[in-house]
């Protein structure tokens, strides 16, 4: 399975936010979209899920254009975790059960309950399934939201800054989970991130974005200091420590 974004444009009122974005990611791969604040990373993710309708261009899963699908059909294929999540007075189990919505007809089946239970176990959340999400920490809530997207059984997983506002322990845990999900469930995963070093450690592919277009695309080993300087306007060096690349600002 291949997920492809073809020349996507998006205008917000008269301001051009996306100017023909191209990218593609295969199942089992994590693609990280890097770039400074306000370059349109979140807008791009929303366009990929048709939460915002691109003004031009197409988003394809294999050869199926998402524009031609109903909202429900898109939701069966693409899972999205927003940067901000509202919390209501519901339990973890119910919050994850919501992920079954695109698949549910009038009534939830036993199968839906079973899938939620299985998803909770993947995320080590089964012990807190009856805890209320409005009483959880940021890290726990982020886990619940990703778990909900997994219960949706999507082919494509879109995550908008899944590690922002998390502490180091939770950042690593969430990214490990995303890695496992991507490999275990063979999703094509796209995420936005600000932490270059974390991204280098977990993502397979990178795109560097500025002014609404992709400037560079490469795999993890291909990231160069020039690409980073080009995008962020900061001179950096990339040093290797124990085989891992690290970005160090000069």
């Amino acid at each position: 399975m291949n997920f492809r974004v073809n020349g996507v444009h998006f205008d917000y009122k008269s301001r051009k936010v996306l100017n023909g974005v191209e990218l593609n990611v295969n199942q089992g791969e994590i693609l990280a979209i890097m770039g400074p604040n306000g370059v349109g990373k979140s807008t791009l993710l929303k366009c990929m899920d048709m939460i915002l309708k691109p003004t031009a261009g197409s988003v394809l899963i294999d050869e199926t254009d998402l524009v031609s699908l109903s909202k429900q059909e898109i939701a069966k294929r693409v899972g999205y975790v927003s940067q901000r999540n509202e919390v209501s007075r519901t339990t973890v189990f119910d919050a994850v059960l919501l992920g079954r919505k695109p698949h549910v007809g009038l009534k939830i089946t036993e199968n839906d309950y079973n899938i939620v239970d299985a998803a909770l176990k993947r995320f080590d959340l089964e012990d807190m399934q009856l805890r209320r999400i409005d009483e959880m920490s940021g890290g726990e809530l982020q886990k619940v939201c990703i778990c909900r997207a997994i219960a949706q059984e999507p082919n494509v997983l879109l995550l908008d800054e899944p590690t922002s506002s998390l502490d180091l322990h939770n950042q690593l845990e969430i990214l490990k989970i995303i890695r496992n999900v991507t490999e275990g469930h063979q999703t094509a995963t796209v995420l936005t991130m600000h932490d270059l070093n974390l991204a280098l450690r977990f993502a397979d592919k990178f795109v560097f974005m500025k002014d609404g277009i992709i400037h560079d695309a490469c795999d993890a080993a291909g990231v160069t200091p020039e690409m980073i300087e080009n995008i962020y306007g900061v001179k950096v060096q990339i040093e290797y420590f124990k085989g891992m690349p690290y970005v160090i600002p000069e």
């Binding site: 899920d49 909202k71 919501l98 919505k101 695109p102």
Partner: peptide, 20 residues
């Protein structure tokens, strides 16, 4: 009722779950 549950979880989440 499910649409309202989804909206309670935030507009973007609801849209990503296929709710108009």
């Amino acid at each position: 009722r499910w649409d309202f549950n989804a909206i309670d979880a935030g507009d973007e989440t609801a849209k990503s779950l296929g709710v108009n």
